[in-house]
């Protein structure tokens, strides 16, 4: 249900202790790319002691652990799994690594798809019941494919569309790749709109100053809210089964979606 997933470096106390002020719906505490090889243990200990001391209802907390090919994968889970947090972001996810992770934890899993092979086999990963969301990692993907990142992001149109379609089919959340230029908020907005048009539900973020733009773009629109209100209003008088609204069939799943949307709008102070 989040619009924004903000990455914060796991070995930086200044960022950790302020993670709840940036208005992000979810925070991804990073133990992977932003933590250098020789400070992996420092970051893990820091996150452990931070989450042992401070609890958060909002935002939701995810941990990006190290991938399964590293010696840190098991350490990260063994040390941190007992703590209160929402779930894991698994880098370089494959079907096998998601299954390995899910055997070690009951927490939610966001699969980070960032290798060409993971994109080829993405549906197999998305269809796993343990996967609650998919995050596109376009930087690593384009590097692996030896193609340049462009401002227009034309080069990832296909993978965005592919993931959007597969996520929709399996009712899984699709989180778009982050925008990397921290100062260009206008272009960030274009990037968000493009991802949304193609079917992304949310966006990951690597700089706190991007949160507002992302939240705005991925919030339910006033039109969507109005429509959901109408559905729920009508549903009050039709206790059972499906009913007709403006010539359309409204059934249980649609009512539930409307309820979710209204709950979301309230949470985001749009109502």
């Amino acid at each position: 249900m989040s619009r924004s997933f903000l990455f914060l470096p796991g070995n930086n106390p200044g960022s950790l202790q302020n993670l709840d002020i940036f208005n992000a719906d979810s925070i991804i505490i990073d133990l992977e790319d932003s933590v250098t090889f020789d400070t992996k243990d420092e970051a893990r200990d820091l996150v452990y002691h931070f989450l042992s001391k401070f609890m958060f209802k909002t935002p939701s907390i995810y941990l990006r652990i190290n991938d399964i090919s590293t010696p840190f994968f098991n350490d990260d889970i063994d040390v941190l799994d007992s703590l209160e947090f929402k779930g894991y972001v698994l880098p370089k996810a494959t079907k096998e690594s998601v299954i390995s992770l899910s055997k070690k934890t009951d927490k939610s899993i966001i699969a980070l798809l960032e290798t060409p092979m993971s994109l080829v086999k993405s549906e197999a990963i998305i269809s796993l019941k343990q996967v609650d969301a998919v995050l596109l990692g376009a930087e690593d993907l384009t590097t692996a494919m030896k193609i340049e990142s462009t401002v227009s992001r034309q080069e990832i149109t296909y993978v965005r569309s592919k993931l959007a379609l597969e996520c929709a089919a399996h009712e899984t959340l699709f989180i778009d790749t982050p925008y990397t230029d921290k100062d260009d908020l206008a272009q960030l907005k274009n990037d968000c709109l493009q991802a949304k048009i193609l079917g992304a539900n949310a966006k990951s973020i690597i700089h706190p100053n991007h949160v507002d733009v992302v939240n705005t773009v991925f919030s339910p629109t006033t039109h969507q809210i109005a429509n959901a209100k109408r559905i729920l209003k009508k549903a009050e008088t039709h206790q059972k089964g499906a009913f007709n609204l403006d010539g359309k069939m409204i059934d249980k799943p649609i009512i539930n979606r409307a309820k979710n949307l209204i709950a979301q709008a309230k949470k985001y102070q749009l109502l």
Partner: peptide, 11 residues
């Protein structure tokens, strides 16, 4: 300021 905390306070 581009410091996120400063940006938040300004907002």
């Amino acid at each position: 300021t581009t410091n996120p905390i400063g940006v938040k306070i300004a907002k």
